[in-house]
Nucleic acid binder design. Structure first.
Length: 279
DNA sequence: AGGGGAACCCGTACGC
DNA sequence: TGCGTACGGGTTCCCC
């Protein structure tokens, strides 16, 4: 379940590890993870390409490539629940790659794997124009310098849906999933089931700060490893220790001591909130 | 238009 | 014990 902080961690690590590398050849043991391109076309397109940057957009890991035909293209990886990118320098046990879906051998002998146990994650190769079109369908980045409380209020308070659903709507706001929606709402003291348009500007301002704070703190802790998530080195993030609400249903609220409630009534997903101090 | 529901996939947990 | 089945989870697509 990598959301923004986990994806950011993977992208930063991976950038340091593979930027400048040339892709030698590609195999696709499980082609059903591919989108927008067939396996044979992916292999021929990537071979001889150079990785110029690895970065994050929303919950996506984006590998910028200059291909052998000099076209700029983007390998867009969406890990969903169990997907991840792993670099094998020859020292990792082969059991780690039992679920490899796409394997790219690099010029220096290492191999970059997209690994995904349940294969709900996806990998797509997008030419520049297609990537821009795709990215433009996603909302603004919550940690962008220019994304202030006014901008946040603007993209959130127009909706008649619940504020939690709106926070997780990738077209309105990029990168927020169930964990950080729950946490931000707890930090801001706002009931997840509130209609988004009912928030005052002051409440939106509070939620904006809470969201940015929780995302920033989680990136500093290298993300939340709740179940499956591992970073590009196969290691867990430690932010799970700092979660106040998510995964803590039934425990006392760290702020007011009332018992945290779990409900599925808001959006069919697990929602945890404090009935004592979230209004 | 915007919202609801199904499909995607398989390890895990649970029931018999 | 061994088999069968329900479940979860984000995004996309289809339909209303």
């Amino acid at each position: 379940m990598p959301e923004l902080p986990e994806t950011e961690t993977i992208a930063r690590d991976l950038h340091a590890m593979v930027v400048g590398s040339v892709v030698r050849d590609v195999s696709v043991p499980r082609p059903d993870v591919l989108r927008e391109i067939a396996a044979a076309d992916l292999c021929s397109a990537l071979s001889g390409g150079r990785i110029t940057r690895v970065w994050r957009r929303a919950k996506l890991i984006v590998l910028d490539l200059t291909l052998a035909d000099r076209q700029n293209s983007h390998l867009v990886v969406q890990p969903r629940f169990t997907g991840g990118l792993l670099v094998d320098d020859g020292t990792l046990p082969t059991s780690e790659f039992a679920y490899s879906c796409v394997a790219m051998s690099l010029g220096d002998g290492r191999t970059l794997h997209y690994r995904d146990v349940r294969r709900l994650g996806t990998v797509a190769l997008m030419p520049e124009a297609r990537f821009l079109e795709y990215s433009s369908g996603l909302g603004p980045e919550p940690l962008d310098q220019t994304f202030d409380a006014t901008a946040f209020s603007g993209c959130v308070r127009l909706s008649h849906q619940s504020i939690k659903v709106v926070l997780m709507d990738q077209r309105r706001l990029a990168g927020v999933g169930n964990i950080y929606a729950n946490e931000a709402l707890w930090r801001a003291g706002i009931d997840p089931s509130r209609e988004a348009s009912s928030l005052t500007f002051a409440e939106a301002e509070r939620l904006h700060t809470a969201l940015r704070d929780v995302l920033t703190a989680s990136i500093a802790a290298r993300g939340t490893s709740f179940r499956d998530y591992r970073d590009a080195r196969g290691e867990r993030g430690t932010f799970v220790e700092q979660l106040a609400a998510y995964g803590r249903g039934g425990e006392p609220c760290p702020r007011c001591g009332r018992r945290l409630v779990v409900t599925h009534a808001v959006d069919g997903r697990s929602t945890v909130f404090c009935p004592g101090c979230q209004f």
